[in-house]
Structure formats: structure tokens, C-alpha cells
């Protein structure tokens, strides 16, 4: 048991190490403004990665989330801009925009999930397809340029990203709540148990009267909803969306899930591990930017090494058992 615990703590130890390293390299690292910024930026990937944890744990995969976020941001902005002349530049309009993002996310997740579970197409293929579709749709809607939120609305909406309780901004709060709920759902509910059981052996789950297809579908819908939520928090940050919004988010989310100790082949999900994974990835980014030890251009390389290392550690854990 001791050894397993040590492995579970591995990512956490790495996170603490990074934190100390950051503080040593540059005192500015510990400034609330910096930490707030790091956490708020990790909230987007973090929300998506929590949903991705469920999808990967049941043995699935979703490559479309980055494009989906861009597409949702695009239609949210368009919807608000189109409504503003009728409903006015007020919170009502923004709430409708948020509704569009959520509904769009749920629908997109449902489409992914339905194609995978009902039409029985491989998750990799389906989401590779929808990844291209969402990306191309948002580029088309923006006509190759940028969709921008009208300035009145933008001013009104801005605080959703930039303010909060003290330096703890809304994205951080939302991320924390979702992470806690996600961990709770995975650990303590029937749904979480079923997700793990399906990823471990879907035939056993089916023979145990688990509604395998429905649970699988629900994980994609959940992920879609969380992408919608991430979009709601993302739009006020820049107030715009384009064909290059959310590029590579899917890979960052998957990487965070893996670093956190969730098995890529499914069956074992660790939501809190995912949170740690997300934080590790964004801390590396931040530290490289603050300290001029290594060029920030090497960020990708360092993240790559960390991902491979995490998987090697996972495998050693399994063979030690």
C-alpha cells in the first residue's frame, strides 16, 4: 500500500517542487497577481480536463474540445451581438449568450457521444472528424478573421473573467467548484463507479446490467457542458474568437489527465490528479516566462518530457503490483 500511495503523490510532489523552484527563481512568482493569472488561465484547460478525465476513464477520447471551444465562443459572440439591438446591452443578453454556450456544448457533446455509442464509430475517428468540422465552422463564421463582441457588452462582461473575491477571480472559483464536484462524482457516485467499471472491462459492466452506452454518452455530454462553461469564462477575457482560438487545448487537456495518473486505456480516473496535472503544465509555462534560465520556446519540449515521464511512472507502478 505504501508504494502505491507514493506513486499517487508523485504529481503532487512535482507540483510542490515546481512551486518552490518558481519562488526561488523569481520573487515575482509569488505575487498574488501572478498566481491569480496562472490559475485563471489554467481554468479553461482545467474545466475541459475534468470532463476529459471521465471520457478517458470510460475508455474513450475526445479530440474535438479545442475546436469546440472556439466554435462555441464564435456562436456565443454572434448570438449576443445579434440580440443586443433587441434586448439591449445588459446582463440579460449576456445570460442568453451564456445559455447559448452551454446548450451548444451539451449538444456538441451529445453529437460526439451519439456517433460513438449509437453509430459505433471509434471515438478517435469521430472526434477527429468533429475537431475539423468545428474548427472550419468557426473560421467560416468569422470569414477567416475575428469575431468580436460589441464594446458595450464587452465592458459589461469583462468582470466575469477579471474580477472575483479579492485576487481569486471567478474562473478560479468555478474551476475549484467543478474540480471538487468532479472528484466527488468520480469517487462517490454510481455514475463514477460505472465510468471506471466500463473502462476496466465494458463486457463485465454490461453483464452487471450497467447501461454502458448511456454512461459513455453521458461522459461526452458532460465534457461538452464543461467546454461550454470554459467558453463562458473565456469570452470575456479577449471578447473575441477566431480560427486560432483554443488550438491544441485538446492535447493539453489530455496531457493533464495523463500526468494526473488517469490510465489512458481507461478504468482508473483521478480527477484531483488531473487538477494537479493542469497546474503543473501552467506552472512550467509561467516559470519559463518569468525566469530566463531556459527559453520559453522550449516549453513544449519540457511538457513533452513530463508527459512521457508520468506515463513511465504509471507503468512502473503497475508492474510493481
Amino acid at each position: 500500500m505504501k508504494r502505491i500511495d507514493l506513486h499517487l503523490l508523485g504529481p503532487l510532489v512535482a507540483l510542490v517542487g515546481l512551486f518552490i523552484l518558481g519562488a526561488l527563481l523569481n520573487p515575482a512568482f509569488l505575487a498574488p497577481a501572478n498566481l491569480s493569472n496562472v490559475l485563471a488561465r489554467s481554468a479553461f484547460i482545467g474545466l475541459i480536463a475534468v470532463g476529459m478525465t471521465f471520457v478517458i476513464t470510460q475508455g474513450g477520447l475526445d479530440l474535438s474540445v479545442g475546436s469546440m471551444a472556439a466554435f462555441l465562443a464564435g456562436i456565443t459572440i454572434m448570438a449576443m451581438n445579434a440580440l443586443a439591438p433587441f434586448t439591449g446591452e445588459n446582463w440579460g443578453t449576456i445570460l442568453i449568450g451564456m445559455g447559448v454556450a452551454m446548450a451548444g456544448g451539451v449538444l456538441a457533446g451529445f453529437v460526439n457521444g451519439a456517433l460513438i455509442t449509437r453509430a459505433r464509430i471509434e471515438a478517435f475517428i469521430v472526434t477527429l472528424g468533429t475537431m475539423g468540422i468545428f474548427r472550419s465552422l468557426v473560421t467560416w463564421l468569422a470569414d477567416g478573421g475575428t469575431l468580436s463582441l460589441d464594446s458595450g457588452l464587452r465592458t459589461l462582461y469583462r468582470p466575469v473573467y477579471f474580477s472575483g473575491i479579492g485576487w481569486i477571480t471567478w474562473p478560479i472559483i468555478v474551476f475549484a467548484i467543478v474540480a471538487i464536484l468532479g472528484e466527488w462524482t468520480m469517487r462517490h457516485t454510481r455514475f463514477g463507479r460505472h465510468v471506471e467499471a466500463i473502462g476496466s472491462n465494458d463486457r463485465v459492466a454490461r453483464y452487471s446490467a450497467v447501461d454502458v452506452e448511456r454512461v459513455r454518452l453521458m461522459t461526452y455530454v458532460l465534457l461538452g457542458a464543461l467546454v461550454g462553461l470554459a467558453t463562458i469564462l473565456y469570452v470575456p477575457r479577449l471578447g473575441s474568437a477566431s480560427g486560432s482560438t483554443g488550438v491544441l487545448w485538446e492535447l493539453e487537456a489530455i496531457a493533464a489527465v495523463i500526468i494526473g495518473g488517469t490510465a489512458l486505456k481507461g478504468g482508473r480516473g483521478r480527477v484531483w490528479g488531473t487538477v494537479v496535472g493542469v497546474l503543473i503544465l501552467s506552472l512550467i509555462d509561467n516559470i519559463l516566462n518569468l525566469a530566463d534560465l531556459v527559453s520559453p520556446y522550449l516549453n513544449g519540449a519540457i511538457q513533452g518530457v513530463i508527459i512521457v515521464l508520468a506515463v513511465v511512472l504509471q507503468r512502473e507502478k503497475r508492474s510493481a503490483e
Partner: peptide
Amino acid sequence: EAGLLLDKPLTENLTLAALD
């Protein structure tokens, strides 16, 4: 192949079909 989740603890196996 169809009865038990071999990599899961005994208790999780026991209650899987009756979790409700």
C-alpha cells in the same frame, strides 16, 4: 471476461451490479 473486474478491489466488484 464477463464476470469480474480483475483489476478492481473485491468490494467494488461485489457491489457493481447492485449499486443503486
